[in-house]
Every structure is written in C-alpha cells, then in structure tokens.
C-alpha cells in the first residue's frame, strides 16, 4: 500500500471517527424540550434521511426514464404501509425497480 494513500486514509479516517464519536459525549439531558437546540436536533433526523433519499434518487431522474424510480418508490411506500417492515419495503422497492427496468429494456 502506497504511503501517501495510507496517510490520506489515516487522516480522513481519524476525522470521520471524531465527527461520529465526539458529539455523542454531549450532555443532551439538560436541554429544555422546547428550546431551539432541542428543536434543531429533533428535526435533524428526518431532515438528514429525507436529504439522503433525495440525493440518492436524484441521479436516477437524469437518465430520462423515471418509470423504474416511480415503481420502486411506490412499492416501498405500499409495502411499508402494509407491513411496517423496513426490510420488506426496501427489498420490494428494489425488486419493483429492477422489474420495470427489465420491462422497459426488453
């Protein structure tokens, strides 16, 4: 392994670990429930996951073939509504996406 790649890995890995670990040491118990920091942290989860869904799905719109994306998204919503299973909804969404992709390319 080249030394410059190893050094790059160690620097970025150390910072990434610090970003993930050190904030867990913050004492959240004394925050007032309706305070601005509490509201910020409560909104962070939904905002982050919504952002990551949009960011990961957005490139799939650029190819001009949104039907697989629509089918996959619809399957996730439908199966989650029926089963409340994250695993089942994820698998169904992926299968629906692949099935429609296959149908369009056949």
């Amino acid at each position: 392994m080249r030394s410059e790649i190893l050094i790059l890995c160690l620097i970025v890995g150390a910072f990434t670990w610090a970003f993930r670990y050190l904030p867990t040491r913050m004492d959240m118990s004394r925050l007032p429930e309706s305070g601005p920091l509490s509201r910020f942290l409560s909104a962070t989860g939904p905002a982050a996951i919504a952002t990551l869904f949009v960011a990961s799905a957005l490139p799939m719109l650029s190819g001009g073939m949104p039907l697989p994306l629509l089918a996959g998204t619809g399957a996730v919503v439908a199966i989650y509504a029926l089963s409340r299973s994250v695993v089942g909804a994820t698998m169904a969404g992926s299968a629906a996406y692949g099935a429609v992709f296959w149908g369009l390319s056949a």
Binding site: F53, T73, V76, Y80, V86, A99, F101
Partner: peptide
C-alpha cells in the same frame, strides 16, 4: 444490467423506508 439496476435502487429504497419509519 437488470440486477445492477435493482441493486442500484437499494439505497434510495432503504432511505425512503427509513424515512417512512420515523415519519410524523
């Protein structure tokens, strides 16, 4: 290619399912 496409949608599907699971 079909398998590649289906696997490529796995992460967006996971994010959407996770979003639904915490949705209020």
């Amino acid at each position: 290619p079909v398998l590649e496409a289906a696997l490529g949608f796995m992460l967006p599907a996971l994010f959407l399912a996770l979003l639904l699971s915490i949705l209020s």
